[in-house]
Computed example of a mutant assay.
Amino acid sequence: MEKLTVVVAFLLLTSLFQPLTARNLEIDVFQLDVSQSGCPGVTKDTWPELLGVPAKLARETIQKENPRLTNIPNVLNGSPVTEDFRCDRVRLFVNVLDFVVQTPRVT
């Protein structure tokens, strides 16, 4: 039982450091300019201010700023995702504690 407690504590501690390191390590390999993509009604395509906030609050903020963005799923950071582009989707990459660890953007 003591080993399980240590493992759980370790996992919780490591997940707390992920938002801090994700800000420094985030590398944009492929960046799509939404204004050139022809998405009607999308006035803002990235939300860097939402890094480190709970996913629920991030989702509410994005929907409040742009109601046309209706598909806002939580994705565990590091999980594979499709590369198709949709004007109504913003993926929230989260850690195990459900905090945003990558800049949300229209994808």
Rank of each mutant, 00 (worst) to 15 (best):
V94Q: 04
E49A: 09
N24V: 06
V7F: 14
T61C: 03
A55G: 04
F10R: 14
T21H: 00
T5V: 08
L50W: 12
S37N: 05
V90Y: 07
L57E: 15
L76M: 02
T43F: 07
P80S: 12
E65T: 09
T43Y: 06
L12W: 08
E60V: 08
L51R: 15
E65F: 06
E49K: 03
A58P: 12
E49M: 06
C39M: 06
R86F: 05
L92M: 05
Q63R: 10
N24D: 08
V53F: 05
T21S: 03
T14D: 06
L25E: 06
Q36F: 08
D45M: 15
V6E: 13
T46A: 10
F30I: 13
Q18W: 00
T82M: 10
T107I: 06
V96Y: 00
D84F: 09
Q36T: 11
Q36I: 03
V81P: 14
N71A: 02
N24A: 12
L97M: 12
T14P: 00
N95P: 14
I27W: 12
L20C: 05
Q18L: 07
T103F: 06
V6Q: 09
W47N: 12
T103A: 02
T21Q: 01
S37Y: 09
L25Y: 06
D28F: 02
Q63A: 09
V101H: 02
K56C: 13
F99I: 01
E49P: 05
V34W: 08
V100L: 05
T14I: 12
T82E: 10
L12T: 02
I62C: 03
V90D: 07
Q36A: 07
D88G: 06
L50S: 09
W47T: 05
T70C: 04
R91W: 03
P54I: 13
C87R: 04
L57R: 13
T43R: 14
I62H: 03
C39Q: 02
E83S: 11
L97Q: 11
E2M: 06
T103Y: 08
K56R: 14
E26G: 05
T70R: 05
F85A: 08
E60C: 04
K64E: 11
D45L: 09
D33S: 15
V6G: 10
L12F: 09
P67W: 02
V42A: 05
I27Y: 14
Q18E: 04
L97I: 10
V6Y: 02
N71M: 08
T70M: 01
L50R: 09
T5G: 15
K3S: 08
D98V: 01
I62F: 04
D45Y: 14
T5P: 08
